[in-house]
């Protein structure tokens, strides 16, 4: 190992709390006190990045709690790349097992939605499919036509009211009534143009988009939607999705791999 590599190894150990390996390079008695600048800067960088990626979690738990959770997470998960806006993909799952979050079982779900927003924000730009492309379709075509969701889209489902809670927490200032309604519900997060959109999803709408994402034909997606929610106004829902730019392209081949 080169001297530079040994130095870096010692420095990282010192960042993690053990200054002894770095001591041979520290030429002054107050070296460790001065070294704490690096510990503080690194910790602040990681905590700031996670707070930026998970603003709704931070709003729900407060700045101090968020920072403590971020630092606990960072001890186990170091960023793998210098673009820090990509750091924290494991945070939602990690939160689900974080003991202090035990009283807030919805917190991990809020984090998943925040991450979906982040994904949509940085996804490759792509104009959504024009409504005219759908106007040419007749119901006879639905059996062998698939509609692919926009590349920025994430669909999520929550058996508790996490989706509604997340939406309540977006109000600025957050609505005083923000609380967990006991209704299951889903959420679509996507960015058809420059702004990220979110839409609440009921049972049928979620089943429909899920089938589309899985590469099912529009016919099968419609059946899935109606069996999840028999009185769903399917045609209206489909029209709304098209107008909102939820789809990226259609293909008339049931065997297509999406």
């Amino acid at each position: 190992m080169s001297e530079l590599a040994r130095f870096q190894q010692a420095f990282v150990e010192a960042l993690c709390g053990d200054f002894a390996p770095l001591a041979p390079w520290s030429s002054r008695s107050d070296g460790e006190a001065r070294f704490s600048v690096y510990r503080n800067t690194a910790a602040k960088g990681l905590a700031d990045a996670l707070s930026a990626q998970f603003p709704t979690v931070a709003r729900a738990v407060g700045e101090g709690w968020m920072r403590a959770a971020a630092l606990a997470f960072a001890r186990e998960h170091r960023p793998e790349a210098p673009a820090l806006h990509a750091y924290g993909g494991d945070f939602p799952d990690w939160l689900a097992g974080f003991a202090p979050a035990g009283e807030m079982p919805w917190l991990s779900g809020l984090a998943r939605i925040d991450w979906a927003v982040r994904d949509a924000l940085f996804a490759a730009d792509c104009a959504p499919l024009d409504t005219a492309a759908f106007a040419a379709l007749s119901p006879d075509d639905f059996g062998d036509t698939c509609a692919a969701l926009h590349r920025s889209a994430t669909i999520l489902w929550f058996d508790d009211g996490t989706a509604g809670l997340w939406r309540d927490l977006q109000a600025d200032p957050p609505s005083a009534e923000a609380e967990l309604a006991p209704e299951p519900g889903g959420l679509l997060v996507f960015r058809p143009r420059l702004e990220v959109s979110t839409r609440p999803l009921g049972y049928g709408a979620y089943a429909f988009l899920r089938a589309c994402r899985a590469g099912e034909s529009l016919g099968l997606a419609g059946q899935a939607a109606l069996s999840a929610e028999p009185d769903l106004p399917l045609a209206n829902l489909f029209g709304d999705f098209i107008a909102a730019g939820v789809f990226e392209r259609i293909r008339r081949s049931p065997d297509a791999v999406w």
């Binding site: 530079l4 690096y38 690194a42 960088g45 990681l46 990045a49 960023p79 793998e80 210098p82 820090l84």
Partner: peptide
Amino acid sequence: WNGAYVPDLLPF
């Protein structure tokens, strides 16, 4: 260092 990234500018 070793596949991990420290968000700081470190000396040597």
